[in-house]
């Protein structure tokens, strides 16, 4: 089958990494915009309303299944590429060459750390919500899951705050290569526009993780 041959070729695998990566990049932005509501200082009302919307709206729900799938695909494919690449290289040089950015040659390591982060992150908030382990809260006469309370409680723990901030640095590094790399894999490289894409990539990889990192720090300091 041509499509299987294509997707399992080295270029096809990259294409998958690139497309799923770009999807996750967009997801990060949406996720951040939603989460910034944690900082409204309204005891989490806006955030809880938003959380309910995100978990009940059929369109969002459908998209979220796509998201789970893409995250998994990105991880699995990443590991497959990492393993084949390791076996293609076989052995390393005695003197480490300095011809790449650190992030670009350590994408797999960064990716694994992010996966671990993701597991903890999901377990802490998403999973608890899914199994209904979070107490409800009444906002304007309607009942909402008080996700805000869980988040608020978590960010009173300095270790969690540090863990989140460090994880964001890791995501930033992953993005710093991944953003522009996704475009290169799609064949979008142009003398005039590639510098622009690279610039955007750097900006994105700083601003988005910074935005996420501010939340726990802010909530920790405000308590």
């Amino acid at each position: 089958m041509w499509i299987l041959n294509f997707l399992t070729s080295s270029l096809g695998k990259k294409l998958i990494m690139s497309l799923t990566g770009l999807f996750l990049i967009i997801f990060l932005l949406v996720h951040l915009i939603g989460n910034l509501q944690l900082l409204f200082g309204d005891n989490g009302e806006a955030f809880n309303v938003y959380a309910k919307f995100m978990t009940t709206n059929p369109l969002i729900k459908t998209t979220s299944y796509g998201l789970y799938f893409f995250i998994l695909l990105h991880i699995v494919q990443g590991i497959v590429i990492w393993l084949t690449n390791k076996s293609a290289k076989q052995s390393r040089y005695a003197v480490a060459p300095k011809n790449t950015s650190w992030a670009s040659s350590n994408m797999a390591t960064l990716g694994i750390i992010i996966t671990v982060f993701l597991a903890i992150h999901l377990w802490q908030f998403w999973f608890k919500m899914k199994i209904g382990a979070i107490p409800p809260v009444n906002i304007g006469g309607e009942e909402y899951t008080n996700l805000y309370a869980v988040v608020h409680e978590a960010y009173q723990n300095i270790f969690f705050v540090i863990f989140y901030v460090v994880s964001m640095v890791v995501i930033g590094l992953h993005l710093s290569h991944g953003f522009q790399s996704a475009f290169q894999s799609l064949g979008l490289n142009h003398k005039k526009y590639t510098p622009l894409i690279k610039g955007m990539g750097i900006a994105y990889s700083i601003l988005i993780p910074l935005g996420f990192a501010i939340i726990p720090v802010w909530m920790y300091m405000m308590h």
């Binding site: 070729s9 080295s10 270029l11 695998k13 990259k14 590429i81 084949t84 690449n85 076996s87 293609a88 290289k89 060459p97 011809n99 790449t100 950015s101 670009s104 040659s105 994408m107 290569h177 522009q180 790399s181 290169q184 894999s185």
Partner: peptide, 18 residues
């Protein structure tokens, strides 16, 4: 050429630029 390249056991590009 890509098919042959893959069959020879070269790794996949991760755009490191090295």
């Amino acid at each position: 050429m890509v098919k042959q390249m893959d069959e020879e056991g070269f790794g996949a590009c991760s755009n490191t630029g090295a």
